[in-house]
Computed example of a mutant assay.
Amino acid sequence: MANHKSAEKRIRQTERRTALNRSRVSRIRTFLKKVEVAIASGDKAAATAAFVLAQPELMRGTTKGVLHKNTVSRKLSRLSSRIKALG
């Protein structure tokens, strides 16, 4: 355990931040899963609609420091190409 007041505070801050980041990542995964399900069903319109909703959520993950920018770009690019291939 922490021996200093500042270390105890850091532990509290880390716990709060970890909980917040986990909820953000979980939310992002939910949006990605909706896109994946729409792609698997073969419905291009639904996949596009889900993708449009997922895009800002992923980018928000980047700005909040949960995901790396290149990771988000790669995911969006691959999803986009899979949606284009549906038609």
Rank of each mutant, 00 (worst) to 15 (best):
M1Q: 13
A2S: 02
N3V: 12
N3E: 12
N3M: 06
H4L: 09
K5H: 04
K5E: 04
K5F: 05
A7H: 00
E8N: 03
K9P: 01
K9N: 02
R10A: 14
R10T: 13
R12H: 03
Q13I: 03
T14D: 04
T14K: 05
E15I: 09
E15L: 09
A19N: 10
L20V: 08
N21M: 15
N21T: 02
R22D: 13
S23I: 08
S23Y: 15
S23D: 11
S23H: 15
R24W: 15
S26R: 04
S26D: 05
S26E: 11
R27Y: 07
R27L: 08
R27N: 07
I28P: 00
I28T: 09
R29P: 03
R29L: 06
T30M: 07
T30W: 06
T30I: 04
T30A: 11
T30P: 04
L32S: 09
K33H: 08
K33V: 13
K33R: 14
K33D: 12
K34G: 14
K34E: 14
K34Y: 06
V37P: 11
I39F: 10
I39V: 14
I39G: 13
A40I: 12
A40C: 02
A40H: 04
S41K: 13
S41P: 07
S41W: 06
D43I: 10
D43P: 15
K44N: 05
K44G: 05
A45F: 04
A47G: 08
A47W: 02
A47K: 02
T48G: 10
T48S: 08
T48N: 09
T48V: 15
A49F: 02
A49T: 10
A49P: 11
A50H: 03
V52M: 06
V52W: 04
A54V: 15
Q55G: 07
Q55A: 14
Q55W: 00
P56N: 14
E57C: 12
E57S: 11
L58T: 06
L58A: 13
L58R: 09
M59G: 03
M59E: 09
R60K: 13
R60W: 14
G61T: 05
T62M: 15
T62Y: 11
T62E: 08
T62V: 15
T62H: 08
T63Q: 12
T63I: 15
K64R: 12
G65W: 15
V66M: 05
L67P: 02
L67K: 06
N70Q: 10
T71H: 12
V72Q: 00
S73T: 13
S73I: 10
R74D: 12
R74T: 03
R74M: 03
R74F: 06
K75E: 00
L76W: 00
L76I: 06
S77Y: 01
R78F: 14
L79R: 02
L79V: 09
S80F: 04
S81L: 13
R82I: 06
R82Q: 10
R82F: 10
I83D: 01
I83Y: 03
K84A: 15
K84R: 05
A85K: 04
L86K: 03
L86S: 07
L86W: 03
L86E: 05
L86I: 12
G87I: 14
G87F: 07
G87K: 10
